[in-house]
């Protein structure tokens, strides 16, 4: 009787689970738990330390290769890194291989440069979308202006003050790819390893465990992973934003998954052995 009763739970209409998940994510959005983010991931710290150690006036190439589908994880990462660069007075060039990223990049440049009084064309530049990543990564090894003749506003990139003294990877302080695709692998292979430009990365949580080998070998100098990485970076930067807010809302949902897995396995044990 009891067995039959609890085994019914396993056949529970999944829409009840959907509803439960909706509640555990929605409620903390309305009423945040406010738990502090204490443990900072070492790889995120490596990114922070790397940028922190750069001299003023350096040049950062940021390839923001994510679209709205991974925005909640990667957008806060990109914003935090750009804030860090601006704070350190490092020049920033933003490029992308994903068409869907162009709108998100515009959202960044609409807000962030203002906070640090940075000017388009002098302190930062947005380069147009390019379709073939291998071709562009290879070209950037010899002459960036061969591919990026103009910026998104149609101005000649060569003549922009922000590009002064920059011709190829060897003139850059670092390159960073923030992506939900496998493009970071390509950046490591075609740019980092080949042209010896220091590579940093920002990836979704899903692909984060896959980059252990590059980090251990030093092919990647640091890596921000998922929303937790974004929250860690915001904590290091002492500028809490969407990443920190997001991770707070995910507290309960994470435990819901664990509880569901354990419950279903206990039910199976009971129905089998009792």
């Amino acid at each position: 009787m009891f067995k039959e009763y609890i085994s019914k739970f396993l056949k529970l209409d999944r829409r009840w689970i959907f509803l439960l998940l909706t509640i555990v994510i929605f409620v903390p959005i309305i009423k945040p738990l406010g738990l502090p983010n204490i443990s900072i991931g070492s790889n995120t710290k490596r990114v922070y330390d790397f940028i922190e150690a750069l001299p003023e006036g350096g040049f950062a190439l940021l390839s923001l290769d994510y679209d709205p589908s991974t925005r909640p994880e990667l957008h806060p990462q990109a914003i935090a890194v750009i804030r860090h660069c601006f704070r350190k007075n490092i020049r920033v060039a933003i490029m992308t291989f994903l068409p869907g990223a162009t709108g998100l990049i515009d959202e960044i440049v609409e807000k962030i440069p203002k906070e640090y009084n940075k000017k388009d064309g002098i302190d930062y530049v947005v380069l147009p979308y390019q379709p073939n990543y291998v071709a562009v990564m290879t070209q950037l090894g010899s002459d960036i202006y061969g591919i990026f003749r103009t910026d998104t506003k149609g101005r000649s990139t060569k003549d922009l003050p922000v590009m002064k003294g920059i011709k190829s990877y060897k003139d850059m302080s670092f390159a960073m790819c923030i992506t939900g695709t496998a493009l970071l692998d390509a950046w490591v292979a075609y740019a980092g390893d080949k042209y010896k430009v220091p590579m940093l990365g920002g990836v979704t949580a899903v692909s984060q465990p896959g980059y252990g080998p590059y980090l251990q070998k030093g092919q990647l100098k640091g890596l921000i992973g998922g929303m937790k990485g974004a929250a860690d970076y915001e904590t290091l930067l002492k500028k809490l934003d969407r990443g920190t807010k997001g991770i707070d809302s995910l507290n309960l949902a994470h435990f819901l998954v664990l509880i569901l897995i354990i419950t279903s396995n206990i039910i199976i044990l009971i129905t089998k052995y009792l």
Binding site: L21, T22, I25, F26, I29, I30, S69, T70, R71, P72, E73, T204, A205, V206, Q208, P209, G210, G225, G226, M227, K228, K245, G246, S249, L250, A253, H254, V257
Partner: peptide, 26 residues
């Protein structure tokens, strides 16, 4: 161990995306 780590992280990734939408709805 590797796939377990990937699964654990996937949970966070997927929830982050959902959080993004719920946050917008709010």
């Amino acid at each position: 161990l590797y796939f377990g780590a990937v699964f654990g992280n996937t949970v966070m990734g997927r929830f982050s995306l959902l959080y993004g939408r719920f946050d917008d709805l709010y």
